[in-house]
């Protein structure tokens, strides 16, 4: 993986001392990390480590009990998802979330219209709006040929690409991807992550993703953050994490060693 030159600027995302518990269960306890522009950062850990809880706090679906989340220096902790999106955070979901009654292109147009603040226009036809920009985004993720198909009938991998295009529609500074390759065939996984990495390096988007598949993690992540039982276990370049005995112990202990490493 050829990482771009480290930027001198402040990190896009800075998380400090983040915590959340559900009725006595400490799902996330005092996690801190940063994500820099143009980097692919993986958030990994065994089941129940607190990855999704962490993600949902970053995306605004959950409100943290404690801690700071700074996006380009601005606090976003506790904001609503739509407010966080407005500040430039794109997001994909573990179970793909698209609009099934719309075509692929309309899904992207919807995000573009929302980005341009055009939702509250009741009289103009939506189909004509931002069509070209939508097509450009679809071309970027390789879905242009299927632009007129209904989202409800797409193959799973294609749906993930559409979601990526939707998440990119507001030219985010940060992209959050929750299990982007879950349920995909191995070849599709590589293709999707390669595409994401290319977009990240070309546009300078910071990408934070969770992932089960260690092959994907070590092939595409610049940096890896490991959570275990709500705590930050390790953080560092992919190769260093791979060799980390503590990490290996956790994965061995939980019996979910993946990818034969």
């Amino acid at each position: 993986m050829s990482a771009p030159a480290p930027s001198a600027a402040a990190p896009v995302l800075a998380v400090r001392d983040l915590a959340k518990s559900f009725g006595g269960v400490h799902a996330v306890q005092g996690v801190s990390f940063t994500v820099e522009a143009g980097r692919m950062v993986a958030l990994i850990g065994p089941n129940g480590a607190g990855k999704t809880t962490c993600f949902n706090m970053l995306g605004g679906q959950l409100r943290p009990d404690r801690g700071e989340i700074a996006l380009k220096g601005r606090s976003i902790a506790g904001l609503r998802p739509r407010e966080i999106w407005r500040l430039g955070v794109g997001r994909t979901f573990q179970i793909t979330a698209t609009f099934s009654s719309m075509t692929v292109r309309e899904n992207v147009q919807m995000a573009l219209i929302s980005d341009a603040g055009g939702i509250w226009s009741p009289f103009r036809a939506a189909r004509a709006q931002h069509a070209a920009a939508a097509e450009a985004l679809l071309a970027q993720v390789g879905m242009l040929e299927q632009a007129e198909r209904a989202c409800g009938v797409l193959a799973y991998g294609d749906l993930k690409r559409v979601e990526l295009a939707v998440a990119l529609a507001n030219r985010p500074g940060l992209l959050l991807m929750d299990e982007p390759t879950a349920g995909m065939a191995p070849r599709e996984r590589v293709a999707l992550m390669a595409l994401t990495a290319r977009i990240a390096s070309e546009t300078g988007i910071a990408v934070l993703f969770t992932e089960h598949d260690m092959d994907v993690v070590f092939a595409h992540a610049d940096r890896v953050i490991v959570l275990d039982r709500g705590r930050l276990l390790a953080e560092g370049p992919a190769e260093a994490i791979r060799q980390d005995p503590q990490v290996r112990a956790v994965y061995l202990g939980s019996g979910t060693v993946s990818g034969g490493h």
Partner: peptide, 14 residues
Amino acid sequence: AARDNALRAEAIGI
């Protein structure tokens, strides 16, 4: 969009 998938709709600013 809100009907099809409220989660997604909120996540794109609606």
